[in-house]
Computed example of a mutant assay.
Amino acid sequence: MTDFPVFDGHNDLVLRLLRGDVTADAVASGLSDGHIDKPRAQKGGFGGGFFAIFVPSPGDKAARHDEMRDPPYKIALPDQISEAVATDWTERGFDAMADLAAAGAVRICRTATEVEAALPAEEMAAVIHIEGAEAIDRDFEKLEAWHARGLRSLGPVWSRDTVWGHGVPFRYPSDPDVGPGLTDAGKALIRECNRLKIMVDLSHLNAKGVEDVARISDAPLVATHSNAWAVCPHSRNLTDRQLAMIRDSDGMVGINFASAFLRPDGRMDSEFDLDIVLRHFDHLVHCLGEDRVGLGSDFDGALVPDKIGDCAGLPSLLTALRSHGVDDGLMTKITHGNWLRILRQTWGE
């Protein structure tokens, strides 16, 4: 199934470098843990994707995951991150991306044409994404500077509030209609992203924030790593109303592999069959159409299904899709074609 290279909506490999868990050279040569490295990418047909620069919240992620093993749960939003702390992390994130490129692990891409050319290459095609815009200043000088360094995608929030807007907490069962939407500054940020042709990511925004982006943005609406609320009623997933807004904008959604956002019971448990992923796929295709669904794994940032495991396990998912009736044309769209379409449309190519 590696005849269909996967361009993926989201991964958190950069965070592993920033925390000192791995080095760029080790990513290029091979790792013993995690989800992504160059040898496994080549084995599994992982052609690349959006590489997130993310500022983690203080606290114990493992404790949050433990709480999510036993629904229902209602986990409070983490505290806000200061602009100074976020700026330091983000600058180091750009340096980490440069290190990955220098090590031959990735090829940083600024255009859809570059992404398409890189997909068959040895290096992973990497689009730089910022997840949570705490580091952006109100005058947008850093946004301009980072765009010049390759920034092409941005999520105004992670699951915590920022000066730009409000994120969804980790709650099950819950819909995403939690709290107010974008602030006035956040609305200005969306307009500035439109001007610079930076893709705006709806993942982690609450319902009112998504509606604000839909009213303001002149670009397709995109959720890089989100699932169908109708299948799993988790606050992080997209309702049919939100999916209709995305469809009407000719946008798209990348299916998130995070177990708690896939499983209908909302449990943080990775032992389940891939037919649950296929249920999300079916619902998204029903609501959005075949041209608006892709993959958004959240590799290195989520507990993914055991039957995928890591990026080398992507052929297991593609085989399941094939057995589900997905032909070559639709497989091409899901694995990378739909992402290329969105990138061209959003970036003005």
Results as ranks from 00 to 15, higher is better:
D291C: 11
A102S: 10
G251M: 04
V163I: 15
G294E: 05
A86M: 10
P39A: 04
E349D: 08
L18G: 03
A86K: 09
C193I: 09
V14I: 15
A105Y: 06
G155S: 05
G49Y: 01
T162D: 06
V253S: 05
R263A: 06
D291W: 10
A52C: 12
W158L: 08
D291V: 11
G20F: 06
R107K: 14
P56H: 03
E114D: 01
K333P: 01
P120I: 03
D218T: 15
G167S: 00
L77E: 02
P58W: 14
I81R: 05
D327N: 14
A24D: 07
A112C: 12
H225E: 02
T319A: 14
R279H: 09
G348T: 11
H234R: 03
T162H: 06
N11V: 01
D328F: 04
S174W: 11
R292D: 02
I216P: 01
S82N: 08
R292G: 07
L317I: 08
A312R: 10
H336I: 03
T239Y: 10
M68V: 14
V213M: 00
G289Y: 02
M199Y: 07
L189Q: 09
V127I: 12
I216Y: 10
Q42N: 12
A260M: 13
H204F: 02
L284W: 13
F46I: 01
D269M: 12
V178S: 07
R191W: 08
F281R: 02
G348D: 15
A26D: 10
D95V: 08
F54W: 12
R267T: 14
A52D: 08
M124P: 05
G289P: 11
D95Y: 07
V157L: 03
G251D: 09
F140N: 10
D273W: 04
L31N: 02
G150Y: 08
L288F: 06
D240P: 10
S32K: 12
P180D: 15
D3A: 15
D282G: 00
V326Q: 09
D282H: 04
F51G: 04
V277P: 05
E211M: 11
M97W: 02
D161Y: 01
G45P: 13
A230V: 12
A133G: 05
